[in-house]
Design a binder for these strands. Structure first.
Length: 191
DNA sequence: ACCGGGATGTTCT
DNA sequence: GAACATCCCGGTG
């Protein structure tokens, strides 16, 4: 069943580990979430919203349960799940999925992926594989107004997820706000 | 396996 | 002008 608004309206560090093993679905393509990172709050210099709201980061300030999609390195889109209360800056970056359905479509969107485990093993990879780009910024996951939704298929989050610092940051690099399914072969890196 | 560098353009200083 | 929540390719061991 689809996740409700209240699931998202909490601290991203609480929501992030609970997103593990949930399912992302976009028009025929689905994948299980196996790696996430939490961002936001007044104490997080690694967050895009750390210095206040800008046109780019507006979606990250709520309402919760929507997507924050940003463009980076001149060519990649990455997708976040917005958390917390409206007016707060809080989100969880989706970093890796285990592909489940729609593999043919994912392969056609990511022709350079050698193996199926490479289709969604990174934040920009999974956004590409699922066909998520800038037009999905602000899309509501609760009403699925853009055909993108988050589902609980009955699989519980791992009781003891792996945890580490976040990947690719220069500021806020010491905060251990990355969670992942230990031993999963579909992670953005071994863990 | 690991490492280094190039691609590519938006955002903010 | 620099930084960037990344990815891919080609080198070497």
């Amino acid at each position: 069943m689809r996740l409700e608004r209240g699931f998202y309206a909490r601290d991203p560090r609480e929501v992030a580990p609970e997103l593990l093993n949930k399912v992302v679905s976009t028009r025929g393509c689905t994948g299980r979430i196996v790696e996430v990172e939490a961002y936001g709050g007044a104490d997080d210099p690694g967050s895009h919203g750390y210095r206040g709201m800008t046109p780019r980061t507006e979606a990250m300030f709520g309402p919760p349960g929507r997507l924050y999609v940003y463009f980076t390195y001149g060519m990649h889109w990455c997708a976040n799940v917005v958390c917390g209360q409206k007016g707060e800056c809080a989100a969880v970056l989706l970093r890796a999925l285990t592909p489940m359905e729609g593999l043919e479509k994912m392969r056609s969107r990511r022709p350079k992926a050698r193996r199926d485990r490479d289709l969604c093993s990174g934040p920009a990879k999974l956004a590409a594989a699922l066909g998520i780009h800038g037009t999905a910024n602000g899309a509501d996951l609760v009403t699925a107004d853009a055909g993108i939704e988050l589902l609980d298929d009955g699989t519980a989050p791992p009781p003891a997820p792996g945890r580490s610092v976040r990947i690719g940051l220069s500021t806020g690099a010491d905060l251990p706000w990355r969670w992942y399914v230990s031993g999963c072969p579909d992670l953005s890196r071994r863990g």
